[in-house]
Amino acid sequence: MQAVIDILSWIFIIGGSFFAIVGAVGLVRFPDFWSRLHAVSVTDSAGVILLIVGMALQAGLTLVTVKLLLILAFLFITGPTSTHAVANAALVSGLKPRSSVDRDDADAATQDDKAGPT
């Protein structure tokens, strides 16, 4: 039983580390601000959930697990909220996203340098 829990928590922790790195790589690789937002949200949801659940499995039924779950609940609520705050502030300040999908906007002409299947 203990071995099963150990292996499960290893899988969770390695998966969480993988998604954390993927989020950071995306943050560096993606070409503009609006796509970087999505890279960050990979770390914020998948990475955080997997790592914290993995640590909780290692800790077992103790007060440590309660603290981990509190951190998880807190990050679950504030992660999307701060991402939304950054996105909203950028939109209000005039940083408009470029769209690869056909739109009948006035500024659509300036944004067709992105290769996409339109």
Partner: peptide, 15 residues
Amino acid sequence: VTRIVLSPKMPIVQH
């Protein structure tokens, strides 16, 4: 999203 990040061409279709 992970597949998009790790693929060399990064097929982004923003909207």
